[in-house]
Amino acid sequence: MQDFVAAIGLVLVIEGLVYGGFPGLARKLASEMQSMPENALRFGGLAAIAVGVAIVWLARG
């Protein structure tokens, strides 16, 4: 559970860096996401999950 809370904290730090450091980029990415088809967003999300699991597995295993 402690690792999960730490992971959530790191996600918030990374998102905060994007929004706080590059607000124009964050706004541009958000507007581009609205024009993307759902299948592309779904594939990107599933790919990110797979890469994240692989990184955690390699780091912790």
Rank of each mutant, 00 (worst) to 15 (best):
V51C: 08
A59V: 15
F43Y: 11
A48W: 02
V13E: 00
V51T: 12
S35T: 11
M36S: 04
L12N: 05
V51K: 02
A6K: 12
I8P: 00
M1G: 13
V13D: 00
G20V: 01
V18W: 06
L12Y: 04
G24F: 02
K28Y: 11
G20I: 00
G24A: 08
A26P: 00
F43R: 10
L58M: 14
W57S: 08
V51L: 13
S31L: 11
V56R: 15
F4N: 08
A47P: 01
A47T: 15
P23V: 04
M1K: 11
A40L: 11
L25C: 06
S31T: 13
V5I: 11
G9I: 01
I55G: 02
G61H: 06
A6P: 00
Y19A: 09
F4K: 11
A6D: 10
F43T: 14
Y19I: 07
F22P: 00
Q2C: 08
A48C: 10
I14F: 06
V51Q: 05
F4M: 10
L46H: 06
Q34G: 05
E32F: 08
L12Q: 07
M1P: 04
V53Y: 02
S35Y: 09
Q34A: 13
M33Q: 13
A50Y: 01
M33R: 15
R27I: 07
